[in-house]
């Protein structure tokens, strides 16, 4: 059992969850994730680690409400307990002085790039951060990211914000404007990561993505998380989650992520009928 210390809505559909997990907090590195189960009948779902506090013994993630598990999580409150919280899983991201690193985050990835920004900055990099939001009211952690980055750009389709473009176009614009970028790291929904990788491919800039295939155990035992990188099958939970975005078989990933599409809808409807009769 793990105790929830905080659970609050950041912006519509995106929530923060902070969990008491001293061992995980002691051990975790940027780029790793946890697996949790919202209740005894729940599914084991992976969430990236967005922050941690070793002294307080806590670990924070940001999640998007999509299906049953994330909806269940969004209804928990500080003091509640969840039956499974295990981590830190996956290999930590490579952190060294690459020179200039461009980070791109969208959706829960805005949270997930934060520890990377912090660590890369500390390692001596110039950190350029692009936050992708559909509209202004979906922006969160801008201040945290500004504090951890050299520059922050906002990619958005909201006319109230300056850019009015989706993140790959923004990346093109930044790269076109001249600064030499040595590495790009993109975290968010599969489509965002895919399109960032496509945007940087012609320029040959190494682009790391944090893959999000369906997982069960997260320890290499089941193979649910298989994906193909450079023509070879990998288990994302132990070989990743970071991979070179130019080597990924994206079509396979998109399809495998949709494996249980009908079941997920059925599950959510079933849960909603029970919760909101």
């Amino acid at each position: 059992m793990a105790r929830i210390l905080d659970r609050r809505r950041l912006v519509p559909n995106l929530h923060l969850i902070e969990v008491e997990a001293p061992e995980v907090a002691r051990k975790c590195r940027p780029g790793q994730f946890v697996i949790l189960m919202p209740d005894e009948r729940g599914e084991r779902i992976p969430l990236s680690i967005s922050d941690w506090d070793a002294a307080r013994g806590s670990v924070t993630s940001v999640f998007l409400t999509v299906g049953t598990s994330s909806h269940k999580l969004s209804r928990l409150a500080a003091g509640d307990e969840i039956p499974v919280y295990v981590g830190p899983l996956g290999r930590p991201s490579e952190i060294e002085n690459f020179g200039t690193v461009l980070l791109a985050g969208g959706c829960f990835g805005i949270g997930a790039i934060y520890p990377l920004a912090r660590a890369l900055k500390k390692a001596g990099n110039r950190v350029l951060t692009v936050i992708d939001v559909k509209a202004r009211y979906l922006l969160y952690w801008e201040d945290k990211l500004r504090a951890a980055s050299d520059r922050v750009f906002i990619a958005s389709r909201d006319f109230a914000l300056d850019s009015k473009q989706y993140v790959p176009a923004k990346i093109e614009e930044i790269l076109g404007a001249g600064p030499k970028v040595d590495r790009v790291i993109a975290i968010g929904c599969t489509y965002l990561m895919y399109s960032c990788a496509m945007a940087t491919k012609p320029r040959g800039i190494k682009t790391i993505v944090s893959l999000n295939p369906i997982m069960v155990d997260g320890t290499g035992m089941c193979g649910a998380c298989r994906c193909t990188a450079a023509g070879r099958t990998k288990f994302a939970c132990v070989d990743g989650p970071d991979f070179d975005g130019h080597e990924i078989d994206w079509d396979e990933l998109f399809k495998r992520r949709k494996s249980y599409f009908d079941d997920e809808i059925r599950s959510l409807c079933y849960w909603e009928r029970k919760e909101f009769p």
């Binding site: 729940g42 084991r44 193909t228 495998r256």
Partner: peptide, 28 residues
Amino acid sequence: NLVGVYSANEYLTRVNLMKAYDFPNYDT
């Protein structure tokens, strides 16, 4: 890696550990 090709570990884990045989009473 097609959808619907399982390792025995995944298939049995879903059913036994996660109780997928009782979906949607269990979420997996």
